[in-house]
Design a protein around this nucleic acid. Structure first.
Length: 584
RNA sequence: GGUCCCGUAGCUCAAUGGAUAGAGCAUCUGCCUUCUAAGCAGAGGGUUGCAGGUUCGAGUCCUGCCGGGAUCGCCA
């Protein structure tokens, strides 16, 4: 139980004894730290229903609790706030017991969908947010005890495949695809580069020329029906693309448990459609087969979900529905969470309605659209390269790493390292900068991506956090502790300075912050926490001698604080998918 | 035009309906013969877009405006 939960329990007892609803008893961290460590605001709403003045109620609550050993002081302030200070002994117990709470009840499965890169195309900056945030949510839910599974859900089944394949066929260059040796990295890269240049041209041409587009649609349909040479070409294109994705996501330390795509859901579409037709949910409309999903009380117009287009081909709504059928069959998940671009909200509303309506997903299964905002450039418009094009993800990662290395050089850090260790540190610092800059923003909001700013390595950045963590590691090594990731030793002295108390208090907030992140699917609260923790530590580090402290008891107590800070900080960075180097 | 999201310090962003709205950057003042100065201690900087409403209490909830963005059936 966290410290606030422990206090809430005590207050609940008091409220209940006074015939007041326990739900008002919640104790929270005070937002006026100079006045209190914790606060309870329940006297005010309780006053409303009991007709007594709030300060009188607060006084009754305080009277019941004031002799409890947890409290150093209980004061009533303002209209009826109860301001709480706890004893250092109580605090000490909780600092020792800081841990990740287990929140899953029965190891429920949660499928997270946060990939969506198209095959045959380079991954670009648009894949950064969903990948990073989705992976972090996966880590958070897994840490909370859920069987959390990330699915990449590649875009490998749409019209873009037809456009690309028809271009190879029309120019008589199918061999460029078919002759590629998958075991030869150079050949794989060459094919990938070819597709990267070819697709935009082919796509542009198809938009200009209706006959090209018609051919592409036909090719798409033929592919979906398993016909050659489309099927073989497609397989090769997919294999090559997966290698590129593995490298990009690997560089970002973004993990997927399931490497499936729209194509894998294809076999489920026809049987699903058959059943939907029998049930009367699937109807023909203007040549297409659609599922009407509007409701009587809709304020907006919700268009039907199109399962089969006029030409008989399927669309992404079809594959998204069928993927849900597949996931229910394979994993029987308690929740399915989509971490995708906010702009797809209407689409997923249609999909969710369709699967609920038809009973594919039971009512008790949670379907969540966790939309993410757009990444904009410093001009506030969607992020572009200086040339005005879309920046490849690989290029962006390289820029972040190069900048990090430059900074290490400027600061004359990591000089004594071997070249390989130095590059590894630079890579970790660069990736940390990239990920932390993204994760610290609210998930659903757009944010401005400023490479210059985030690679400044000052203030609220990933590198600052790594720096603090590495400082602690270094200090603990000097103190002769080697298994510094797992040292749970010692305890807090009962006579501590205000600086130490602040740090200790802050450490106890960790379980509550974690719970909040799980509840709302909001990693940014963990970023905020990690940064504030690092600041608290830095303040402690600057104000308290540790290794040179002569009083052995004080020294041990401070080393304990260092170890607990490192434990919580690395744990938090871990949840954010950020790796901490041993030194830098 | 309908619907949804956003509007908070010069800039980038926080703030489960709680007290005097907080951080970082930038600006200014101090601090490196002691554990990593990518740091610490401190200062200045606000009519939370505007106007109403709900209530003990509103940046937060409701209504209406203003400004920005997204989206509105055969692309994903």
């Amino acid at each position: 139980m966290s410290l606030t939960e422990d206090l809430t329990r005590l207050f609940e007892d008091a409220f209940t004894a006074l015939n007041l609803p326990a739900e008002y008893a919640a104790v929270r961290v005070s937002d006026r730290s100079e006045m209190a460590q914790f606060q309870c605001n329940g006297a005010m709403p309780a006053a409303k229903i009991s007709g007594k003045p709030p300060r009188d109620i607060a006084a009754e609550v305080v009277a019941r609790l004031k002799d409890h050993p947890a409290f150093k002081s209980l004061e009533i302030a303002g209209p009826g706030f109860i301001n709480i200070h706890v004893t250092d002994a109580f605090l000490s117990e909780h600092v020792q017991d800081v841990h990740l709470p287990h929140l899953a009840e029965h190891n429920e499965t949660i499928v997270l969908d946060y990939g969506g890169p198209n095959i045959a195309k380079s991954m670009h900056v648009g894949h950064l947010r969903t990948g990073i945030i989705g992976d972090t949510l996966r880590r958070i839910l897994k840490a909370a005890g859920f069987n959390a599974l990330g699915d990449i859900h590649m875009g490998d089944w749409g019209t873009h495949m037809g456009i690309l394949m028809m271009d190879y066929i029309r120019t008589g260059e199918e061999h460029v695809v078919m002759d590629c040796d998958l075991d030869d990295p150079v050949a794989v890269q060459a094919l990938f580069d070819d597709m990267y240049i070819r697709y935009p041209k082919a796509s542009g041409a198809a938009k200009e020329d209706e006959s090209l587009m018609a051919d592409a649609r036909t090719a798409t349909l033929n592919l979906q029906n398993g016909e050659e040479p489309f099927r073989s070409m497609w397989q090769k294109i997919r294999d090559v693309s997966v290698r590129a994705m593995e490298r990009n996501y690997g560089d970002l330390n973004v993990w997927f448990d399931i490497w499936k795509g729209e194509a894998d859901a294809h076999p489920y579409i026809a049987p699903m459609a058959e059943k939907l037709k029998e049930q009367g949910f699937l109807v023909q409309d203007d040549g297409a087969w659609v599922i009407p999903v509007e409701k009587n009380d809709d304020k907006k117009k919700v268009p039907p979900l199109i399962l089969y287009k006029r030409d008989g081909a399927v669309m992404y709504g079809s594959t998204d529905m069928a993927t849900i059928v597949e996931r229910v069959q394979d994993f029987n998940p308690a929740r399915m969470i989509y971490i995708v671009d906010q702009r797809q909200s209407l689409h997923f509303e249609q999909v969710f309605r369709a699967v609920r309506l038809s009973g594919i997903v039971r009512d008790e299964v949670e379907l969540t659209f966790a939309g993410v905002g757009t990444m904009n450039g410093t001009d506030g418009k969607p992020f572009k390269t200086r040339a005005g094009g879309v920046m490849r993800l690989a290029d962006m990662i390289e820029m972040a790493r190069a900048k990090a290395l430059e900074r290490l050089n400027e600061a004359s850090l990591a000089l004594e390292m071997s070249d390989s260790e130095r590059l590894d540190v630079a890579s970790k610092v660069g990736i940390a900068a990239l990920k932390f800059a993204d994760l610290q923003n609210q998930r659903h909001a757009d944010y401005i991506f400023d490479l210059e700013r985030m690679t400044q390595f000052e203030g609220k950045t990933g590198p600052y956090l790594l720096y603090q963590a590495v400082r602690i590691k270094s200090l603990l090594r000097k103190a002769g502790m080697h298994d510094i990731e797992h040292c749970s030793f010692g305890s807090l002295l009962l006579q501590i300075s205000e600086t130490e108390r602040r740090l200790a208090l802050f450490l106890t907030h960790f379980p509550d912050v974690f719970k909040l992140a799980v509840k709302n699917y909001t990693p940014h609260v963990l970023c905020d926490y990690a940064f504030s923790l690092a600041q608290e530590f830095s303040s402690f580090y600057g104000n308290c001698h540790i290794l040179s402290e002569e009083d052995e008891g004080i020294k041990q107590s401070r080393l304990f604080l260092c170890a607990q800070t490192l434990f919580v900080l690395t744990q938090t960075l871990d949840l954010l998918g950020i790796e901490t180097p041993e030194r830098m």
